[in-house]
Design a protein around this nucleic acid. Structure first.
Lengths: 222, 222
DNA sequence: CGTTTTCCATACGGTTAAGTATTGACGAAA
DNA sequence: TTTCGTCAATACTTAACCGTATGGAAAACG
């Protein structure tokens, strides 16, 4: 997984891995049929980890904390932390562009993630179609932003990301008042933990600031 | 460029290219110093094309058509057409993850694109910070969506993409009424060309449906 | 007309890597 | 103690490349 993150699938060479692990090719070919066999195993490990993780991240949250969870998911993916997990994510997706089996795994993971995220929006009271749009936008954003190099564009990247999180998470259906209020007047803060008094959250949404994220909340724990 | 699109940078092998072009390695090494020299040339060609293209796409639009232009930019990138251009885009960005020179070129292109898109939002009357957020979201979305496999998630992908375009392009500052109206009641249509009578566009925004896009409007024309 | 420059081809050496064959060490069961 | 299953190391073949050396034809030049 380390090699996959750093070098991509093409870096998964069996002689290189063997040297890195202080074993020999002979040993490798006892454990794996061939290189393809190894790659499929890597794919399986990745898939299982991702599915376990997204369920852990989105299910079982206390009612009313769904909006916090949405912000949390965005943050976990798009923030500067979890660099390795995102590198693996991108490596697998680049792989999937040319390999049908990798594409199938990515499809499976995407499907589960999207449904989990949509459930979060639905729990916030967002209509079904809008929930679908927003969760798709959410994931497209977190993957896409990690492909971009925007140092020069904006000095305050942190604020920029917060604002984008709001665009994704704040539904005009449920949080229209707050959005308007924040984008026009106040010093642009509408996160659950920052926009404190007026309780802007879409639905119930009580307490529990998402700022304190558990150390396990990673795109990948490998 | 064809090989780059199909195979990525790693597919740019000089013996393969030579055979494909019906020349020999000897010929190649007369035109290029080495493989790296070729890659840098490819990078330059890509950069110049992208910069020319984004300026063509966003500048010189008639006043009042800025919103249409925004939708047009989203459409050109994220639609099923222009597959090759997006493949090149992704190949270059994957390349940039490991190569500092490629990263520098991507940074340059990103910067110009983001500024052009921001100008569009600004021309629509969107405040500066929100314009920054939205144009960043726009590009992250178009790149990210092309990394995802979402066949199973939603049957009506076209409608989904239209809704997402609205989320990106419709500012609550300038188009709040219309957004609410569309997401609650009507059969979910808010594109300039589809939401016909009530003239929902953010600012001036007159006529000229963006549906008829010129054939040149590609991520890459190579 | 001869020489130089331009452009392209062939041949060769060296490296990296996949996959196979063979042998060996070692512990458990017969 | 012998045998067998498990796991690992070495050696070898083949192939795909990168880069270089060198030769040659045709056009440009003096």
């Amino acid at each position: 997984m380390d090699v996959l993150a750093e070098e991509g699938v093409s870096g998964l060479r069996i002689e290189v891995l063997a040297k890195r692990l202080k074993v020999t090719k002979g040993s490798f070919y006892w454990h794996f049929q061939d290189r393809r066999d190894l790659l499929m195993a890597v794919l399986e490990v990745w898939k299982d980890g991702r599915i376990r993780d997204i369920i852990k991240q989105t299910r079982n949250q206390r009612p009313g904390e769904e909006l916090e969870r949405i912000y949390h998911v965005i943050d976990v993916y798009s923030a500067g932390r979890n660099r390795r997990g995102m590198q693996i994510e991108l490596a697998v997706r680049d792989w999937a562009r040319r390999d049908p089996e990798a594409a199938a795994v990515v499809a499976e993971v995407d499907d589960i993630r999207l449904r989990c995220a949509r459930d979060l929006f639905l729990a916030c009271g967002v209509p079904f179609d809008e929930a679908s749009s927003r969760c798709m936008l959410l994931y497209a954003y977190v993957f896409g932003i990690s492909l971009m190099v925007y140092d020069r564009f904006d000095g305050n990247a942190a604020q920029l990301k917060r604002d984008i999180s709001d665009l994704i998470a704040r539904s005009s259906t449920t949080g229209a008042r707050e959005v308007n209020q924040n984008t026009t007047a106040a010093p642009r803060r509408s996160h659950p933990e920052t926009a404190s008094p007026s309780q802007p959250s879409a639905l119930p949404s009580t307490a529990a600031p998402p700022s304190a994220s558990p150390p396990n909340s990673q795109v990948s724990e490998h």
